[in-house]
Design a protein around this nucleic acid. Structure first.
Length: 246
DNA sequence: TAGGCCATCTGGTCCT
DNA sequence: AGGACCAGATGGCCTA
């Protein structure tokens, strides 16, 4: 449920009015505003000195009523200019923030779409419950490992071999993830072996010639195990996803 | 009601 | 400068 835009705007206003950096402001300050910023002491202490340019040598005083009126008018103008520039700054910041929020939302939607795509190629479960994000990642990791193991077992049965070499990059052989220990959690193996390039590359499903992707390895509909196409039954019992998944 | 999961906002950091 | 990425915060929804 997206937060009301009014809330965001009001939050932004509060945030920007609190700790705003002066560098952001510099581009929107008028000359009057710059002058007001650079000469704060003129109005804070001592007699106000008109920010008058030129006319060197002419003594300037604010003693006369005319000079006092001029100074007041300058202050009013500075104040109005500051209000305008700050409003402009808030407006610009808000529009940037709204655009950034939109991009971030879109980015997360893309990420979720990728996760959905990943779910769609994973075996489904009988209760048809949607895997959570972390479950999807864990399951995918385990599934890939199981498929790779399938290839390895299939390779052992082939005289010529080579199926595994065709499907997996050479560098994956020594670091094939293997079954994560049941005690490991997402932090330990999720960011370790699963994040390795090998885990990402070991995807027999991407190769249509993979025996794991063919009907040769599927089990009948009466199989009590989960619908896990392409995996030998023995492997299923050792596949970590069935250890971890609950 | 507590806890898990999720979407969103937000500010910081890095990259192009 | 602007966009991508990231992590923290927050609030809503759902379930045990």
């Amino acid at each position: 449920m997206p937060a009301p835009l009014e809330t965001c705007i009001s939050d932004l206003d509060c945030a920007s009015s609190g700790g705003s950096s002066t560098s952001d402001l510099s581009g929107f300050l008028t000359d009057e505003e710059d002058g007001a910023r650079l000469q704060p002491s003129a109005s804070a202490s001592g007699p106000p000195v008109p920010a008058r340019r030129g006319a060197p040598g002419i003594p300037v005083t604010s003693d006369t009523p005319r000079a006092q009126d001029d100074e007041q008018e300058r202050r009013r103008r500075r104040g109005r200019a500051r209000v305008r520039s700050e409003a402009l700054l808030h407006s610009l910041r808000r529009s940037r923030r709204v655009k950034a929020n939109d991009r971030e939302r879109n980015r997360m939607h893309n990420l979720n779409a990728a996760l959905d795509a990943l779910r769609s190629v994973l075996p489904s479960f009988p209760d048809d419950s949607k895997l959570t994000k972390i479950e999807t990642l864990r399951f995918a990791y385990n599934y890939i490992w199981a498929l790779a193991e399938t290839l390895r077992l299939a390779d052992q049965g082939l005289s010529g071999g080579g199926a595994r070499e065709r499907l997996l990059p050479p560098q994956c052989a020594p670091c094939l993830p293997g079954p994560p220990s049941p005690s490991s959690d997402a932090e330990s193996w999720g960011s370790g072996a699963a994040a390795s390039p090998c885990a990402a590359a070991a995807s027999p499903l991407s190769d249509p010639s993979s025996p794991a992707a063919s009907e040769d390895f599927t089990y009948g509909p009466g199989d009590p195990l989960f619908s896990f196409p392409g995996l030998p039954k023995d492997l299923l019992h050792t596949t970590p996803c069935f250890i971890h998944y609950h």
